Each structure stands twice: as structure tokens, then as C-alpha cells.
Amino acid sequence: MRQPTASMLLTAVLLVAGCGTGPRDPTSTTAPAPTGPPATVATAPTSTAGPFSPTDVAWLQLTVAMAERLLPVLELVPARTTDPAWRRLAAQVEATARADLDRARRLLADAGAPATNPHEGHDMPGMVTAEEVTALRAATGSPFHRLLAGHLRAHLAQAARVAVAEQRAGAHPATTAMAGAVIRGGNAHLTRLDRLDRPTSTARATAQ
């Protein structure tokens, strides 16, 4: 299946009614670099204020939704593995996710966007489903590490793709700057993940 471009992904999230399962493969290790033209925005998903564009608001809302879906997964780690390296990685990713969540919420408040999550209940690319969380809760040790690695890689790669689209098509300086930080932080976490998940790391060469 052809991987969606960053432009296609961000355009899709602007159409809230179209949020669905999308392409998902939590064990995939391939995260191709985003290609394609900037996202085209037809209508705003919410009202915006000041210099925020509809693309800025849509990306911030998706960032909140993705972080809120990832945090419960990371909170499982201390009880499912005793490996200090995996615990350390999870703590690092969790700290970044919480910081991104707080920053995105502040920017959405500045934009005058509603506090509600328009993606609530939508299983989108990069998001862990309820069934997958159940599987994680039932696993420990190496099986847990394998599942966790797949979900982390999917989340981090997807977050980077849509952040690139925000950089290209966004208008608000602080929001596009945050997108750059998300890309840099995600790449750093992916590098750390590859060191732990060596058998599957080589397939990610094109993501750097």
C-alpha cells in the first residue's frame, strides 16, 4: 500500500468527519521522508483568531489527540518491563509528549479554538487502538518490548510526517516552530528506539 504523503495526511485531518482507521501497521519499521506539495486548506475545522490559520489549528488538535492516545501506553511500561533501558526510553518519550501536549493546548487557547478534542474516538494513523492497549497489558518482557517498539515507531514517524506538513503549510510562527521541535524530538527518540530495537532498526534508514 502506498504510504500517504504529509500533505495528504494533514489535509485529511482537516475533514473531521473523514477521520477513520487509515493505514495502520504498528510493527512497521519504515518511515519514509514526507514528500508532496503543501497541504491545501479549503475550510477551517474551528474558528481561529489572530495569525493562526486553519492548518495551524488542525495540526495542534491532531497533536493533542495523538499525545492523549500515547500517554496511557507509556504509563504501562513500569509494570510490564523491568528493563531499565526501555523504562528510560519510555520516560523520555513521555516527558516530550506531555510537554507537546501542554504547548499545543496553550496555542489552541491562544487561537480561540474549542478545548474539546475533535478526534476523540477516531483511530487514525499513529494512534494505538483500545484493542492494541489490551494486547500490551497482557504482554511482559520481550513480547511487550516488541509491541511497544512498533507502536512508538508508528507514533513518532506519523507525528513527524504531519509536523512537516504543518511546517510547509502553517502560518503561525510559534506553531510552525513547535512543529520543528516535534520533528527534532521525534527523530532523537527514533534513534534511541533503534538502539534498543536493533533487529528491526535497519529498515528505518530512509526516515533520517
Results as ranks from 00 to 15, higher is better:
residue 159 A to N: 04
residue 194 D to S: 07
residue 13 V to E: 09
residue 125 P to H: 04
residue 5 T to V: 12
residue 40 T to Q: 12
residue 138 A to I: 10
residue 87 R to W: 08
residue 121 G to R: 02
residue 171 A to T: 15
residue 27 T to H: 15
residue 4 P to V: 14
residue 173 P to N: 04
residue 32 P to E: 03
residue 45 P to G: 06
residue 134 T to S: 11
residue 119 H to Q: 08
residue 200 T to G: 10
residue 59 W to G: 00
residue 151 H to C: 00
residue 27 T to Q: 15
residue 25 D to E: 13
residue 34 P to R: 02
residue 13 V to T: 10
residue 113 A to V: 03
residue 121 G to K: 00
residue 57 V to Y: 03
residue 77 V to P: 01
residue 155 H to E: 07
residue 45 P to A: 01
residue 180 G to A: 05
residue 153 R to T: 04
residue 81 T to L: 02
residue 157 A to L: 04
residue 172 H to K: 07
residue 94 E to W: 03
residue 46 T to Q: 09
residue 156 L to V: 02
residue 109 A to Q: 11
residue 108 L to W: 02
residue 122 H to P: 06
residue 189 H to S: 13
residue 70 L to M: 07
residue 135 A to Q: 15
residue 67 A to S: 09
residue 1 M to W: 12
residue 60 L to R: 00
residue 94 E to N: 08
residue 187 N to A: 15
residue 119 H to K: 06
residue 109 A to D: 08
residue 146 R to L: 14
residue 121 G to C: 00
residue 124 M to A: 11
residue 144 F to L: 05
residue 73 V to T: 08
residue 127 M to N: 09
residue 177 A to S: 15
residue 192 R to S: 11
residue 44 A to T: 10
residue 76 L to A: 02
residue 159 A to G: 11
residue 98 R to C: 04
residue 162 V to W: 02
residue 59 W to H: 01
residue 39 A to E: 07
residue 167 Q to A: 06
residue 189 H to D: 14
residue 2 R to A: 15
residue 158 Q to S: 06
residue 205 A to E: 12
residue 70 L to Y: 00
residue 59 W to M: 04
residue 157 A to H: 02
residue 85 A to Y: 03
residue 2 R to D: 14
residue 132 E to M: 08
residue 188 A to M: 10
residue 98 R to S: 08
residue 179 A to G: 07
residue 136 L to Q: 00
residue 148 L to T: 03
residue 81 T to A: 12
residue 199 P to N: 08
residue 180 G to W: 05
residue 196 L to P: 13
residue 137 R to S: 09
residue 25 D to H: 06
residue 49 A to Y: 11
residue 6 A to I: 02
residue 167 Q to N: 13
residue 63 T to L: 10
residue 26 P to H: 07
residue 55 T to A: 15
residue 157 A to Q: 01
residue 89 L to H: 03
residue 20 G to R: 13
residue 119 H to L: 15
residue 202 T to H: 11
residue 41 V to C: 14
residue 119 H to V: 06
residue 189 H to C: 09
residue 58 A to C: 09
residue 80 R to G: 06
residue 20 G to I: 11
residue 20 G to Y: 07
residue 169 A to I: 02
residue 79 A to L: 13
residue 112 G to M: 01
residue 191 T to N: 05
residue 9 L to C: 12
residue 137 R to H: 06
residue 148 L to Q: 03
residue 36 G to W: 00
